[in-house]
């Protein structure tokens, strides 16, 4: 019997700093890995340190690399920060339910990302911008702490100029040299050209941002069940065995991390749930 808890040994192919604490690295997929869907995650393992759930931030069509963008804040992620190719680490996956891209076909795709919440949404951009005819419009609204912490900025600007991506970013605070927006992501919704009735929204970021974005989108007329969010809890096993990542009746690791907002709203609105 195949053991879903036994990692594969994989080799790091590249490592790149994104901002002070955030970095992106690629590993060679294990032989039997198959493919992943945008929004899914892998469990990465470092001997002696443990495992960490990391969303996959690369192109789902790329079968030669598995890309992860990580913020160095825990034991495992800090240790990953110190590794360089050809380091070998453990990997199992992919886990979870991804973004409902099919539901957005023929409609407007609106992505809202906060901070490193852009990582699990980038696969959606790879996929959607490779077949833009499937969507009326693809929009990315991005919130970040400061201009220096905007991820993948060169690639996003390239997608904006060459691939038809409507892209707006705002930061919490900036020096006077910054030419872009300063403010909150919810205000970007008004600045962007979107047709709320046609919109399928995918939102990822801190939980409080999800709540505020969902509220603003609904005020504008986006249907509640067309708002999808990716949630975070401590996903320790990926298989529903360990119980850590539960939110109400859901295991985030296998029923999520992506949910239609109405399904999780009552639980997100309950303090300490």
């Amino acid at each position: 019997m195949k053991d879903p808890l036994l990692p594969h040994l994989v080799e790091m192919q590249s490592w790149q700093q994104e901002s002070e604490l955030v970095f992106t690295f690629q590993v060679a997929p294990p032989e039997e890995y198959g493919s992943f869907r945008a929004g899914q995650f892998n469990m990465l393992y470092l001997p002696g340190m443990g495992e960490s759930a990391i969303s996959i931030s690369g192109d789902p069509a790329d079968r030669n690399h598995l890309t992860h963008t990580v913020r160095a804040v825990g034991n495992v992620t800090r240790a990953l920060h110190g590794l360089r190719p050809p380091a070998r680490i453990g990997l199992r996956g992919p886990f979870g339910r991804g973004w409902p891209l099919a539901a957005a076909e023929g409609r407007e795709l609106l992505l809202m990302a906060g901070g490193i919440g852009l990582a699990p949404l980038r696969p959606v951009l790879f996929q959607a911008l490779a077949a833009p005819e499937r969507y009326q419009r693809v929009t990315l609204l991005l919130g970040a702490r400061s201009p220096e912490e905007i991820l993948y900025s060169e690639q996003l600007l390239r997608w904006k100029s060459d691939a038809g991506l409507q892209f707006l970013a705002t930061v919490d605070v900036a020096s006077a040299a910054w030419r872009g927006d300063v403010g909150v992501i919810t205000d970007l919704v008004q600045r962007a050209a979107i047709n709320p009735q046609q919109t399928v929204a995918m939102v990822c970021g801190p939980e409080i941002m999800l709540r505020f974005c969902a509220r603003r989108l609904r005020e504008l007329g986006v249907a509640s069940d067309a708002i999808h969010v990716s949630l975070e809890r401590h996903m320790q096993c990926g298989t529903g065995f360990c119980g850590h990542c539960q939110l109400g009746p859901y295991f985030l690791c296998k029923d999520g991390p992506v949910f239609a907002y109405p399904a999780v709203e009552p639980y997100l609105m309950t303090q300490e749930f």
């Binding site: 443990g50 320790q236 096993c237 360990c242 850590h244």
Partner: peptide
Amino acid sequence: CFCSSTREHVNPVGLGVTHMRRWESC
């Protein structure tokens, strides 16, 4: 009740590591 946690057990002999799972509580 089925909640569990994992921890790394460093084996003093041979310096290997064992990935352990044990009962935990919500």
